[in-house]
C-alpha cells in the first residue's frame, strides 16, 4: 500500500469568542492518497471549508488549530512557522476558491498573476514562466491563450475566470488541490465543464483533489471517496459508490435519499427534518441524535467516534458494532 499524501489526525479547529469557545471542527481524521479525489460534503457550517483552510494554513484569526496534526507525506505542516508554510502553499498545496469573480486581483493582468506565482516557487526565468503559463491556460481550455494571457480578469466571463483560477492554483505544480466549492458560484451549464477540466488537469499533473462542496451530484461525478461532515465531525467516510448506494450513517442516508433522481415522480422533495445544531449548541452524545430516525438511548449520552465498520469505510454511529466512544 502506498503512503498517503496527506494525513489529518484528530484535527480540531476552535474559535474563541466572547461567549466561549466555538469548535468548528472536532476530532477529524482522514487520509488523501496521491492522485485521489476526496469529496467533502455537508451543510453550511458543517466545517468542511474550515478543514480545507486548516490544511492550507489559512484559518482567519482568532480561529486556530486547537488539537491534532496534519502531515504532508512525512512533514508535519500544522505547526510550521509562517514563512515555511507559505512555501508549501501554492507549491505543494494549491487552493481554488468559490467565487471566480472575486478570486482574481482586478488590477493585474492574468499573465502577471501567473508569472508571479510561478516565479515565487520555481527558479525559472520570466520567459520560461510565461511559456508555462500559456501552456496552462491552454490546458484549462482558454482559447487563444497566448494572446488572452495579457488580458485583465474583467475581460473574462465567470466560467473562464474559474479556469484561470484553476490554472493559478496548479501553476507551481502542487500535489494536492483543495477546491472549496469551485462551482457553486457558476452557471449550472458550466459547472460540469469546470469539474471536468479540474479533474483532468489534476490527473495529468498527478495532483490529488480535496473537493469541498454541498452538491452531491458533483461528488458522485468527480470523487473517488467521500467524507460526510456534520456539525464539525466526520459522520462517514468511504468509497463514493458505496456511500451513495449504501450509506451507513443515518445522516448520509438522509443526504443520499434527498438527491432527486430523474425518472422518479415525487410529490415533494425529500429532506431531513430539523436543522444542524449551531456550534455552541451541539447536543451531548451523537450530534445528529435530535434529527435521527433511528435514534436510541445510547445516542443521547455517548458520542460515537468515527470508527472502521468494514474495510475502507468508517462511520460514527452506534448502529454498527466496533464503533468506539469518542
Amino acid at each position: 500500500m502506498t503512503e498517503p499524501l496527506l494525513s489529518v489526525r484528530n484535527l480540531a479547529v476552535e474559535f474563541p469568542t466572547r461567549h466561549g469557545i466555538l469548535t468548528a471542527v472536532q476530532d477529524i481524521s482522514f487520509d488523501i492518497m496521491p492522485g485521489e479525489v476526496l469529496g467533502m460534503v455537508g451543510e453550511s457550517g458543517a466545517g468542511k471549508s474550515m478543514t480545507g483552510a486548516a490544511i492550507i494554513g489559512l484559518i482567519e484569526p482568532p480561529g486556530r488549530i486547537a488539537r491534532g496534526e496534519i502531515w504532508l507525506r512525512d512533514q508535519r505542516i500544522d505547526n510550521l512557522p509562517p514563512e515555511k508554510m507559505r512555501k508549501i502553499r501554492g507549491r505543494h498545496i494549491g487552493m481554488i476558491f468559490q467565487d471566480p469573480l472575486t478570486s482574481l486581483n482586478p488590477l493585474y493582468r492574468i499573465s502577471d498573476q501567473l508569472i508571479e506565482t510561478i516565479r515565487t516557487h520555481l527558479p525559472v526565468s520570466r520567459d520560461e514562466a510565461r511559456k508555462r503559463a500559456v501552456k496552462l491556460l491552454d490546458d484549462v481550455g482558454i482559447p487563444d491563450a497566448s494572446r488572452r494571457i495579457d488580458d485583465y480578469p474583467h475581460q473574462f466571463s465567470g466560467g473562464m475566470r474559474q479556469r484561470v483560477v484553476i490554472a493559478l492554483a496548479l501553476c507551481a505544480g502542487p500535489e494536492l488541490v483543495i477546491a472549496d466549492e469551485p462551482t457553486t458560484a457558476l452557471d449550472v451549464s458550466v459547472q460540469a465543464q469546470i469539474i471536468e477540466v479540474m479533474k483532468e488537469l489534476c490527473a495529468e499533473h498527478g495532483a490529488a483533489i480535496m473537493l469541498v462542496t454541498h452538491d452531491m451530484g458533483v461528488i458522485a461525478e468527480a470523487a473517488d471517496r467521500v467524507a460526510v461532515m456534520y456539525a464539525g465531525r466526520l459522520a462517514e467516510i468511504g468509497p463514493v459508490r458505496d456511500v451513495i448506494k449504501d450509506a451507513r450513517h443515518p445522516y448520509s442516508q438522509g443526504l443520499m435519499g434527498a438527491i432527486p433522481r430523474l425518472g422518479e415522480s415525487l410529490e415533494r422533495l425529500v429532506h431531513i427534518p430539523g436543522s444542524m445544531p449551531r456550534l455552541n449548541a451541539v447536543p451531548p452524545g451523537c450530534p445528529f441524535n435530535p434529527r435521527c430516525p433511528k435514534v436510541f438511548d445510547k445516542c443521547r449520552t455517548h458520542r460515537p467516534a468515527t470508527s472502521e465498520i468494514e474495510p475502507g469505510r468508517r462511520a460514527a454511529c452506534w448502529l454498527y458494532p466496533g464503533v468506539t466512544e469518542a
Binding site: G90, F97, S103, A172
Partner: peptide, 14 residues
C-alpha cells in the same frame, strides 16, 4: 477580499 486570500493560498510572499 478573496483575491488577497487567494494570493496567500498561492504562497506569494507577505
Amino acid at each position: 477580499t478573496e483575491y488577497i486570500r487567494f494570493a496567500k493560498a498561492r504562497g506569494l510572499t507577505q
